[in-house]
Amino acid sequence: MAHQLGQTLITISCHEETSSTDLIGRFIIKGAETVWLDGPLTRAVKEGSIIYLDEIAEARPDIIVAIHSLTDHRRELFIDKLGETIKAHPDFMLVASFNPGYQRGFKELKPSTRQRFIAMSFNYPDENIETTILVSESGIEISDARRLVQIGNKIRNLTELGLSETVSTRLLVDAAKLIQSGLPKRLSVKVAVIEPLTDDPDVLQALGDLSDLMI
């Protein structure tokens, strides 16, 4: 979308140590002096970029506080270390993502933060679209792409295995690329799809048997 809109996109992959300092900026020592270095959020606010905070629920709470004033009518960022408030460039836009989970252990966004965004759910693409994606991304034969998608969907439905992450389209694309470059199909699925999902020997065996039956 950034490309289509002719906008710069800045992506930040948030994790549990990502703090507002990482996004807003910090003082650094340069030679004999201390200089201020804008973080990616400050830069995006000033220059009018699209900033994408991937996995925002993983970030530290101070980030959520920092973006609140950017997500309502004020559209401004308070830089506490400088004691300054800057108004967002008219082209600035904030995009964030997270994976909702309804089991313990998955971080959620607070309702007071969520209601500052419009939101869309993204589920896995349907079989035909995901097959098209695999073919487009890897050049693999359509019949092999469809088999990979079927394996992916089968594993996604095996919730009783207790996998904390399941098969992403990205993993299927990786498997398709390996097959396209000549790695045997079963080995491609094993290393690109199954091994990244679990370390449990029984689950590895079960998923391996399943994929060997299907491809």
């Binding site: 950017l70 836009m93 993502s97 997270f98 309804y102 869309m120 589920n123 207790g162």
Partner: peptide
């Protein structure tokens, strides 16, 4: 997204639900 951008409304993408049934 095009309309969200036009109106500069923050946009939240919600990924696939992680369904975990503990063993």
């Amino acid at each position: 997204f095009g309309h969200a951008y036009q109106n500069k409304i923050p946009f939240l993408l919600k990924g696939p639900q992680v369904q975990v049934n503990p063993v």
